[in-house]
Design a protein around this nucleic acid. Structure first.
Lengths: 198, 198
DNA sequence: AAAATATCTATACAGTGTAAAGATACCGAC
DNA sequence: GTCGGTATCTTTACACTGTATAGATATTTT
């Protein structure tokens, strides 16, 4: 299944990987299908047997980028073994930090992922809850369990937290906010979530 | 200064306007310099006497889009004449709503404005406080003056509010959150800002 | 082994951004 | 006014893009 001969074995995932690599380096709007194919020593037209067109390949790469973000978040979470209140808070913060870090370390992948290429069809809830969403809700659950977040605030907190973290990442990336804004935001979030308790 | 003859008078702003129009319709990555020039009945190369390259033109169009967003916000603000506490709250909400509305009504302009084309050089504070920023701080000032927001929370609220609103706009636009998420977010924000008082 | 199919290549075409050189209209100096 | 210089625009050309079509090659099926 890897490379059993002339037919290259698994061009589809090789193309995807190549697309991700190229986007990572130069950004989505400056990657050419021909370059990706060239990297793999393959004719430009070869891609059309696996993806309907260039845009579809980039979209697939975008979803791969979203997955990489989720990977990084889970990795960041896994490195915090503290339990209890402190653990819950640390994990919450690590989640935001890894999100922003991904945006700043991989700006091109981040923009590809959230820049119009990977729009969900907008139909009624497509019942595809995104790994990022799942990860976030788990962290908020923990905050609730530890008594750090009032249960009735949890639902709305999901939207607030994700929006704020995504927003600050984007705005820093675009130079609209300074990098320190991220930590300030995390402070505000922690503080405000906590305030619901007293 | 408008159209005094063959030299077209003011090609530069005509190109800019044309670029904005085209981006508005089909999105930045599908607009061609030649099409913009064609709309104006002008040769493709003509643009190069006014902009170093296509990217620069699109960047200018992006900043124009940012300005349109600010216009829309100020217009939304101007339509609320209520004074006092209710007015401050209404204006705060209208600010968020107009921001999200702009993103949803003009997705291509919004993406151009915040999708990497208009990055501030990232140098130390470039002392260019953006109209959006000014507008936001004014609204928060009013909240403080009306006693709806604790003074010590104001500074950090700037980042929180702008990030959250920008984030929710983006995530709705990309299909990651449903449209109703915006109102939920405004509820949370109003509630949480208010909580700092009791 | 032969036929059918999936995969890849070769070729070609219209469209792109943009560099270079030539034409045209304007503008200030005499 | 006329003349020369300059900004503006056109023409032409080139390298490059995505992708459609048709042909070659390897794999799979029968």
């Amino acid at each position: 299944m890897s490379k059993p001969g002339y037919h290259h074995g698994d061009l589809e995932s090789a193309l995807l990987q190549g697309a991700v690599n190229r986007v990572r380096l130069v950004g989505a709007e400056k990657v050419s299908l021909r370059a990706i194919a060239g990297d793999l020593g393959v004719s430009p037209s070869a891609a059309y047997h696996h993806f309907p067109d260039k845009d579809a390949l980039l979209t697939a790469a975008g979803f791969a980028a979203i997955d990489k973000l989720a990977d990084q978040q889970e990795l960041a979470l896994s490195m915090i073994s503290v339990i209890g209140v402190d653990g819950a808070l640390a994990r919450f913060r690590a989640l935001g930090r890894s999100y922003v870090d991904f945006a700043l370390n991989e700006p091109h992948l981040f923009r590809l992922a959230f820049g119009g290429h990977c729009v969900i069809p907008d139909g009624t809830d497509s019942e595809a809850p995104t790994r990022a969403w799942t990860i976030l809700t788990a962290a908020l659950d923990e905050l609730v369990n530890e008594g750090l977040l009032k249960f009735e605030f949890r639902q709305k907190s999901e939207i607030l937290v994700w929006s704020a973290v995504h927003g600050v990442a984007t705005l820093i990336l675009e130079g609209k906010l300074p990098p320190e804004a991220a930590d300030d935001l995390f402070d505000s979030l922690a503080q405000m979530l906590g305030l619901g308790n007293e």
